[in-house]
Simulated assay, not measured.
Amino acid sequence: MRRAQIHILRARLPRCLAILLSSAIVLAGAFAAPEEEPIAPIPAGRPIDSPKAALGERLFHDPRLSHGDVVACASCHTLAEGGDDGRTRSVAANGALLDFNAPTVFNVALNFRLNWRGNFRTLEEQNAAVLLDAQLMGTNWEELLSKLGTDADYLKAFAEAYRAQPDRENVLDALAVYQRSLVTPDARFDRYLRGEAGAISSEEEEGYRLFKDFGCTACHQGVNVGGNLFQKFGVFANPFDDTPPSDGDLGRFTVTGVESDRHVFRVPSLRNVAVTAPYFHDGRTASLAEAVEIMGRSQLSREIAARDVDLIVKFLGTLTGEHEDRPLAGKAERAPQ
């Protein structure tokens, strides 16, 4: 009800009812729901099909899924650290550098699209492309299924999980089931959102306030603190002036051919960002503080003061969650390799 309408209503009511109306308005304000937080905690206890997840875990770590038995999915997604490979850009099967920095596999199922260009909608679709891509795992289904079909342990595991022999569909499903299990709940910030006193420090809480006040949550929000929309890298300042151009810098333009998609990428999740350096699609910096400064200039058109950068970095450190009941390991600023 608008303020002017309230005043008119008060004037037309007997004094006793007007007092009751005023009291009700005050009480309603006192018990109003708090402002909704832009970030939501990761739900705990996601149900996972154990036989399929166990099979998917084995496949994920098996280099025999690649041509020549050279690399596994885990080669670029190291679960012992941040779920990535710590490199500026990943290395192709032929030893050349790929166009992109490897995103973390943790919480991947919480993204609305996959890869920096968002060119895949499902894990099954992405896994199939990775397996067959000559620059990545370079295999084919005949080769891969032949390997699995001659392994007695795999035959037993597929029979238990799918009541079938290995085939394209159940290989992709097992990998996806396992990847969906790689969530990292119970970050200190999740506990803060649930009301746990002392879960984060006063400086970390101040960093979160700045993160919201500066407008970072326009793109980094929701349960995955990002990963749910596309955005141009370089809204206000061109971040490509000092780097040689590459196809990777074109972003979604290489997928759609639409000019407005040039330099547009899927917004990355900031979950576990403190242990997933280096940053950006091209791994241009291993410093989380520098990454915050770059985002300030390119996305917000502001130079963020050093103290504010430090506070925001402290807040980002509270987004590190747990895998297998242990906080994720990693260095805050791994040197690019």
Rank of each mutant, 00 (worst) to 15 (best):
Y192N: 06
A157R: 14
K156A: 14
E142L: 09
S202Y: 07
G95D: 02
A11T: 12
K212N: 06
R113Q: 07
D133H: 15
V177C: 12
R89G: 01
L175S: 09
D282L: 12
T139H: 02
L182A: 01
I48N: 01
S22C: 06
G251K: 08
S202C: 02
R64P: 01
R58M: 04
H67M: 06
T78E: 09
T78L: 14
V275L: 04
F189R: 04
H77L: 07
L65S: 09
A199E: 03
A30T: 05
T243Q: 05
A218N: 07
I39W: 05
L229T: 13
C216V: 07
G321F: 07
A53E: 13
D310T: 11
D241R: 15
R284V: 01
F211L: 04
A306T: 11
F230P: 00
A80V: 15
F240Y: 15
M137R: 13
H67D: 11
P239T: 02
A157K: 12
L270H: 10
G257H: 08
L98V: 05
F253K: 05
A80K: 13
G283A: 10
R262C: 00
S246H: 03
Q179N: 04
R10E: 11
R307Y: 00
R10D: 00
A161K: 00
G138H: 13
L123W: 07
A159T: 06
E204K: 02
I48L: 15
Q221S: 15
R12C: 11
H263Y: 15
F31G: 03
G207P: 06
L311V: 05
G222P: 09
T276G: 00
F240M: 11
L148Y: 09
G138Y: 03
P185Y: 07
R3Y: 09
L132V: 06
P268A: 10
S50K: 10
T88V: 08
A92D: 11
V309P: 03
L55N: 08
D62F: 05
F236V: 10
W116N: 05
P239G: 09
A306R: 14
S298G: 08
A128T: 00
T256K: 08
A289D: 15
I6W: 12
A32P: 00
V258S: 10
L145D: 02
A53T: 04
I39L: 13
A129S: 13
L9R: 11
R307D: 14
Q299M: 13
R297I: 03
E322T: 08
Q221N: 14
R117K: 14
T217C: 01
I48G: 07
R117M: 14
P278E: 13
H67L: 10
H7F: 14
I304P: 05
Y178G: 04
L79H: 10
